[in-house]
Nucleic acid binder design. Structure first.
Length: 145
DNA sequence: GCCAACGTTGGC
DNA sequence: GCCAACGTTGGC
């Protein structure tokens, strides 16, 4: 899961413990969240950062539920066509697990043969993308000294 | 259903 | 700030 650290960083998640991943307005990203199961592990990625990369780990703490911001007329994430009966946007709640000793940069990921098939690289702009167990473990190894 | 125009993400 | 790579919208 990607987040701009200026907006919501791993340190904010650490402080808040949990957060609903609201504001995702892309169908593929939404579908990926709806496919998540309780306890699934998440790579937390800082985008638009210096440098960008995976900075830590979170865990799915609540299954996907309607994103409440879609009903809020004052929110920038308001969705006119959404109703309580038929919500359009869903999000999971995630829980802080840990912050890496060292960030695993996008550049590292790009140049690591074990990570070259990551969905993250295939579709760079997607904010929620799937990760294989092998990729997950390998990135954890790189992030933890 | 096609496609042009437009908007967004995110690396650089 | 630029721009590539998408995704979305809406006219037809």
């Amino acid at each position: 899961m990607k987040s701009e650290p200026d907006v919501f960083s791993i340190d904010t998640l650490k402080k808040d413990k949990t957060t609903w991943w609201t504001g995702v307005r892309n169908y593929t990203a939404r579908n990926n969240m709806q496919a998540m199961e309780l306890g699934d592990m998440i790579l937390f990625y800082h985008s638009n950062a210096e440098p960008s990369g995976v900075i830590g780990i979170a865990e799915v703490s609540k299954l996907a539920a309607p994103d409440q911001l879609q009903f809020d007329k004052k929110s920038e994430y308001y969705a006119e066509k959404a109703t309580q009966e038929k919500p359009i946007w869903f999000c999971t709640e995630i829980k802080y697990k840990s912050k890496f000793d060292q960030l695993v940069s996008l550049d590292q990921i790009k140049h690591d043969p074990k990570l070259k098939n990551m969905a993250l690289l295939k579709q760079g702009r997607l904010s929620v993308s799937p990760v294989s167990e092998a990729e997950f473990k390998h990135i954890c190894k790189l992030g933890e000294k």
